[in-house]
């Protein structure tokens, strides 16, 4: 197996570990006084963390020259979507008990829910078009443009997190700083490329096709 293959084999269970921990704690009635809140927070945290890891791969591979790292991006991105689904499901099932009326009102009336919902919905087309076939069908350039939606999702997720806080927003700010750095890197790289003092960009898609 390739280097990426082995690494993926190791990272896959690692990405499942937070879910495993939740299930184990739930089975042992060890989620604290408010288990549903604990599940909501944990799945939300991991969605955001994995989104940031996904966004870190491009800067990392360019800064280190380890171009093969791109082979990890899809899997981690899909895990971010997976935790996003769990977070969303926790809200509609455990928190709202499938009360469609109350949820519709929530999405309409409450900006932090609207923001979270937006972040989640925008991840769906990315997950759907994550297969190699879809990349080919869309063509690399268009695919790449579509997948820039992750910038919007990650930003919306930070805003969602901030607005969900009662007062103490130091954690959303910490995540926000990381996101700002990751997006800032792209802005700088783009500015340099367009002024021409950057070596030719590594095409994004070749890495994926190679995994």
């Amino acid at each position: 197996m390739t280097r990426v293959g082995w690494l993926k084999l190791a990272i896959f269970p690692l990405c499942l570990a937070p879910l495993g921990l939740l299930v184990w704690k739930a089975a042992n009635a060890n989620l604290g006084a408010n288990p549903i809140e604990a599940i909501t927070h944990s799945t939300g945290d991991w969605t955001l963390r994995l989104l940031l890891v996904t966004l870190a791969i491009t800067p990392l591979r360019k800064l280190t020259g380890q171009l093969w790292l791109i082979g990890l991006r899809r899997m981690i991105g899909l895990f971010a979507f997976f935790y996003g689904c769990l977070h969303f499901l926790t809200y509609i099932w455990l928190d709202q008990g499938f009360d469609v009326h109350s949820m519709a009102k929530d999405v309409y009336k409450r900006p932090f829910i609207t923001m979270g919902f937006t972040a989640f919905v925008l991840l769906i087309p990315l997950a759907v078009t994550s297969t190699r076939k879809m990349i080919q069908r869309l063509g690399g350039r268009r695919w790449q443009w579509l997948h820039r939606l992750i910038y919007v999702t990650a930003t919306a997720a930070i805003v969602h997190f901030t607005w969900a806080m009662k007062k103490d927003i130091h954690r959303p700010i910490e995540y926000g700083i990381v996101l700002a750095m990751l997006l800032g890197y792209r802005v700088v790289a783009w500015a340099r490329a367009s002024t021409g003092n950057q070596p030719k960009r590594v095409p994004e898609v070749t890495g994926i096709a190679a995994d």
Binding site: A26, A29, L31, A33, N34, P35, I36, E37, W93, L94, G97, S102, K105, D106, K109, R110, P111, F112, W163, A164
Partner: peptide, 25 residues
């Protein structure tokens, strides 16, 4: 009267009845 960011119509009772019982507000 809702909190501007969340509804105050329902509440989750913490009474040690277990995970599944706590789903119902």
């Amino acid at each position: 009267v809702d909190h501007p960011r969340w509804s105050q119509k329902m509440e989750r009772r913490i009474d040690g009845s277990g995970f599944f019982a706590s789903i119902k507000k």
